Simulated assay, not measured.
Amino acid sequence: MRACVVHAAGDLRVEEVPDRAPGLGEVSVAVELAGICGSDLHYWRHGRVGDFRLREPLILGHEVIGTVVDVGPGVTALAVGTSVAVHPATPCGACAECRAERANVCRHSRYLGSAAQTPHVQGGFSDRLIVPARQVRRLPPGLAARRAVLAEPLSVAVHAAARAGNLAGRRVLITGAGPIGCLVVAAVAAAGAEEVVVTDLLPEALAIATEVGATATIPVDGTSASDRSDWPGDFDVAIEASGAAAALHTCVGQVRRGGTVVLLGLLPPGEVPLLGNIVVTRELTLRGAFRFDHEFDTALALLADGLPVGPVVSATLPLADAPSAFALAADRSRACKVLLDLVADR
């Protein structure tokens, strides 16, 4: 079968890879659409994501929808022909985190298209994907594929919003209007935030943030804006969704006393400056937000209910054109979320 494989930084190939039949408790999904994530771009451009470094060829992709085409022994709840979304995480179910219902930070979790472990966990940019049946969700009736494929990144956004606490009537700052940042906008707006202010370097990204629910946008230049006098300031919550150290600096400097900062974007490897004294003297709460768990089902329901996220999807290209699709996805002035269509040229 065909797959999009990264071999090293800058070395992305569409090539033939072995297929297999599903085993006990597994299903085989014919992938239809898959979204290119920021982590996929990092593996392609840098050979790593944060502290996760490529050590062997890796099939990328973890934002996947498709159709069940085969089931393994013991699978009775899913029939061939069922349209599904795939939850990309396989937690161990036994560690302290899993037992505490925090499977998203399971210390032994396997995640599609990730180099966090060796051997790496091969991802979903392939004609067929075999996963445990428990990771497959039926698509809600009437949910279009182009919306359903956003379930995974929207789950990340929903989890980040939940980590911020009760958002009803709150003033929220979001730094970064990439695909995740824009989906965070939609998620916090759906959670009842009264004001949603978004920052980014690019006007094109800010325009999409406005379309999905931002009440105001602020262009920035890549440096910390904590000392700017023209900022609205005193936000109840700030969610850092860009992965830039300067943006984290801004978040800490712009929340009110006793406010909350959620760290969502993965920062560059190594240490980054932090306004620690402000955290202390204003008694700020810093919370990490990593992946998601049950929020995947919440995201599918929100998409089925019409959450306004359509503007996030910029383009769809066939799998054979994956290198061009990655180049487009990396150009934030031209695209937000880029999808791979695995049916168009199958």
Rank of each mutant, 00 (worst) to 15 (best):
V252N: 04
V262C: 05
R282D: 12
T260C: 11
L266T: 07
L264M: 10
T260Y: 07
L267S: 04
E271V: 13
L266I: 11
I278K: 15
G259F: 05
V262F: 03
L263D: 01
P268H: 08
G270C: 11
T260Q: 04
V261P: 00
R282F: 09
L274V: 12
P269D: 10
V280F: 13
G253N: 01
L263Y: 05
V252Y: 06
V272S: 05
V252R: 06
P273Q: 06
G270Q: 10
V279F: 04
L264V: 11
V252L: 15
L266G: 13
T260G: 11
I278L: 15
R256Y: 05
E283K: 13
V261K: 01
V279R: 02
V262G: 03
G259E: 12
L274P: 04
V272K: 02
L264R: 09
G265A: 08
L274I: 07
N277F: 12
L267M: 13
V279C: 07
V279S: 02
P273D: 10
G253L: 00
T260S: 12
V261W: 00
E271C: 07
P273I: 00
G259Q: 12
E283I: 03
T281L: 15
G258K: 09
V262S: 06
I278Q: 15
L274Q: 04
L264W: 00
G253H: 00
G265Y: 02
V255C: 01
R256M: 10
G253F: 00
N277L: 12
P269T: 14
L267P: 03
R256I: 04
E271T: 09
P268S: 07
R282Q: 12
V272H: 03
G258Y: 10
N277T: 09
V252F: 10
E283M: 14
R282W: 09
N277Q: 13
L266N: 13
V255H: 00
V272W: 02
G259M: 10
V261C: 02
T260A: 08
R257N: 11
T281K: 14
R282G: 01
R257E: 12
V280N: 13
E283N: 15
R257L: 06
V280R: 13
P273H: 02
R282P: 00
L264G: 05
T260L: 12
V272C: 01
G276M: 07
L267C: 02
T260P: 05
G253I: 01
E271F: 06
L264A: 08
G276F: 05
G253Y: 01
G259A: 08
L263F: 05
V272L: 01
P269V: 14
I278R: 15
G276E: 04
L267V: 01
V252E: 01
G270P: 09
Q254A: 13
